[in-house]
Design a protein around this nucleic acid. Structure first.
Lengths: 132, 132
DNA sequence: CGTTACATTTACGTTAACGTCAAGCAATCT
DNA sequence: AGATTGCTTGACGTTAACGTAAATGTAACG
């Protein structure tokens, strides 16, 4: 139970999250992650891992890294500059509405694709019978 | 009530779907749409409009145009070449599973973002009170 | 018949999100 | 010591999905 097991190397991160080193360095360059340094080497903290989880999730919904960065900032606010905090808050709110709309559409799309698949399945069954 | 109102010019399409001419030409080049021609000019059919609706929806879920093109082909199968039909069918099926997983994750993400927003809202309310 | 308003093709430009070398430092194995 | 392994920083390459500009065509308006 060493405290240091809190810190992970770039390779451990890659294995754990199934990303490439390049991706992690890229995210650091874009200020999405803030790994500590042991000399020149990166050491990723628990905070980095939490953020990476959110980043990867966000990506699956088609959000840009820049969008994600702004939303992540919501998690780190100290409440100093009102204006920016408020702006970020509103941005996240808009995003939420957008996600709910997306979910509704996703439901429709899923239903539609199901219908198509049923039709396709029947057709294929037909082809199979015809092939005998 | 002219039969020809079935056909729409590129501008009408752009206005109806809020896309640029370039986008429609691009989709044609990528074989996602197949407008007729009046001499050199494009005339989009009902089928093109149906496809465009599906294209735009697919895009909102982060599917690539190539993915979308393959799924659209499912709608146009005549059942001639079994192998390809089967492959497309399986692709669509995988896609459906993926979409359902995405929908589940989206629920989680929405819930999480809601929690954040509540916290942010409380904080902002606090800031407002402090500012008086 | 001139010009205005859209249409067309061709082709180069752009952004995001990395991939892919290249070259070098550092610790570790043999 | 030499070689291997893994990390580092540049820096250029790549793909998708269009944007944008140039040159040209043509239909309609006045």
């Amino acid at each position: 139970m060493q405290m240091t097991s809190d810190l992970m190397t770039i390779r451990q991160m890659c294995d754990a999250f199934d990303v490439t080193p390049r991706t992690l360095r890229f995210y650091e360059a874009k200020e999405l992650l803030f790994p500590q340094r042991d000399g020149t080497r990166r050491l990723f903290t628990r905070r980095d891992r939490a953020r990476l989880t959110l980043i990867l999730r966000g990506k699956r919904f088609g959000f840009s890294l820049e969008d994600i960065r702004q939303i992540l900032d919501l998690y780190d606010r100290d409440g100093s500059n009102h204006a920016q905090t408020l702006r970020t808050y509103e941005l996240a709110q808009a995003r939420l509405a957008q996600m709910e709309a997306q979910r509704a559409e996703l439901d429709v799309a899923i239903a539609e694709l199901r219908v198509e698949l049923d039709a396709g399945g029947a057709m294929i069954a037909g082809l199979r019978r015809a092939a005998e």
